[in-house]
């Protein structure tokens, strides 16, 4: 399982930056069957959280309606230098985390 975050390395105070995230995950819908006809259990990411310096910037409740290998792009107000922490959890309770740093000037 891997994930990545894309943010600019630097921003000016008060600037609105774009955050992009991509998480490798099958997002198994629970509606598919294997070659023997046995249903494949649902396993989707149910929650994605982005915190910046400990403060929630974006949270998402997700379902099987989000495409495999979830991709998200959203905005964030750059106020101080710090670290963006992305974390997620799926139906099987598996958690993942990824981090990215931002340096804010001005």
């Amino acid at each position: 399982m891997s994930a990545r975050i894309q943010i600019p390395a630097e921003a000016k105070r008060g600037e609105i930056i774009e955050v992009r995230i991509l998480i490798q995950h099958v997002m198994e819908t629970g509606y598919r069957f294997d070659d023997r006809g046995t249903p494949i259990a649902r396993n989707v990411i149910t929650s994605i959280l982005c915190n910046y310096n400990g403060r929630e910037v974006m949270r998402a409740d997700t379902s099987s309606g989000i495409a495999a290998n979830p991709y998200l792009q959203f905005c964030m107000l750059a106020e101080a230098s710090g670290e963006l922490v992305l974390s997620w959890v799926d139906d099987e309770g598996v958690r993942g985390t990824e981090r990215a740093s931002l340096s804010v000037s001005g």
């Binding site: 609105i16 930056i17 997002m27 819908t29 509606y31 910046y52 403060r55 929630e56 910037v57 974006m58 949270r59 998402a60 409740d61 997700t62 379902s63 099987s64 309606g65 989000i66 495409a67 979830p70 991709y71 998200l72 792009q73 959203f74 905005c75 964030m76 107000l77 106020e79």
Partner: peptide, 28 residues
């Protein structure tokens, strides 16, 4: 979605720290 087996695709919670209410994703 009005056709998917699960109608709610996702909810995205934003706030003043979002700066701009704008997002992109890929859906099924």
């Amino acid at each position: 979605s009005d056709r998917n087996p699960v109608s709610k695709i996702a909810s995205f919670y934003l706030g003043p720290y979002s700066g701009r209410a704008e997002l992109s994703t890929r859906v099924r």
